[in-house]
Simulated assay, not measured.
Amino acid sequence: MYRLCYDGTWKGMLTLIFESFEYKWHIAAIYKKPESIQNGLFDAMHEVITNETKALRVWNALRLKLPPNALGDLYKVFLSEITQIEMTLCTAISFYFSGVDKPHLAYGRSDVLRIKQIAKMVDRERHRMKAFIRFSRQQDDLYGAMIEPDFNVLPLIRKHFSDRYADQRWLIYDVKRDYGIYYNLQEVEEVRVAFSKDFQEHKMLLEHPEEKRYRNLWQQYFKQVNIVERKNLKLHIQHVPRRYWKHLTEKQIL
């Protein structure tokens, strides 16, 4: 049995799958660097080095086996970052290569069913981020937004925002994972920002002087359109869970 360690990237994951087939490994556990690794008494440890050629071979082979939506589900499940989800991906992908017709629909298998269920959860979070992200204008005319999604959905929303806000510079920063996506009017790139101590304490960017006025207008609008007599907090929370409220302009105190 082998305990495998990889760099935590999607290409690294595909490389791991390639080598597990190549060397016929029986895998006991998979870890991302620099996670703490629990050594097994009779298990060998191996570090997988990301190889783009091997990763591409696995991806191209999967494209021959699965429709685009099922391919997308695999990537979404990887982005879920659920503990040891790599083991589920490995066993499911191994089954996909078994020669069974339409293997991604074999929901009688627990790993295939779990792939579908988790992909739906990640997709739901992706849709919520499209709806709940609130930009604020910064002093240098950069539009910034802070998010803390349950899953790592930034790679899934970058095209949506680059298409929708192609005429302005913006930054969407995942404070939970400490990285963001930045659009410079030409392309989107992943960035990490060394925030000041003031930001770390208050989670506020350097806003443009007019931003507070626009924020107050937005909050007043929501206050005016709210019909108190028809308030249904339970239903509202179902659509807008409380964990998102801290980054929603309309939920801040006037």
Rank of each mutant, 00 (worst) to 15 (best):
G8W: 03
M45A: 07
P68M: 09
R243Q: 13
R164T: 11
K130W: 01
N184V: 10
G144Y: 10
G12Y: 01
V193T: 05
R134W: 03
Q138E: 08
E19W: 06
Y143W: 14
Y96G: 03
P149G: 06
S196N: 08
C90A: 12
K11Q: 13
Y23G: 09
H239S: 11
I115K: 06
G99W: 04
S98Y: 01
A106S: 11
S94A: 11
D140Y: 04
R213V: 14
K231Y: 07
Q186D: 14
S196W: 04
D163F: 02
H104K: 04
P209D: 08
Q139D: 07
F97D: 06
G144L: 02
M146C: 08
W59R: 12
Y221C: 05
R169F: 00
R169P: 00
R109M: 12
D141E: 15
L89T: 08
R3T: 15
T50E: 14
K11I: 00
E211M: 10
N51I: 04
D167V: 04
A119C: 01
H247E: 09
H208D: 14
K197E: 15
K197V: 08
A29I: 04
L71T: 05
L4C: 10
L171Q: 07
E189D: 06
R158S: 15
D198N: 13
A166M: 03
A29T: 08
S36A: 10
Y23D: 15
R126T: 15
L41M: 13
Q186C: 01
T91L: 08
M45W: 01
H202Y: 11
Q220I: 06
A70I: 03
R134L: 07
V188G: 03
L254H: 05
Y107Q: 09
R242F: 08
D174I: 07
V122G: 01
E125G: 05
L248N: 04
A166K: 12
A44V: 06
N232T: 04
K116I: 00
Y31C: 07
T50L: 02
G144W: 02
D141L: 14
V77Y: 15
A28K: 15
L233I: 11
R124A: 11
H46S: 06
D111C: 12
A131Y: 02
N216K: 11
A29P: 08
F42M: 11
R126W: 00
R164V: 04
Q219S: 07
H160N: 09
V240I: 14
G108R: 12
L248P: 03
K116F: 03
I17H: 04
N39F: 11
M1H: 05
M121A: 13
V58Y: 03
E86S: 11
Y23E: 15
E207Q: 09
I17V: 10
F161A: 05
D43H: 13
L205K: 02
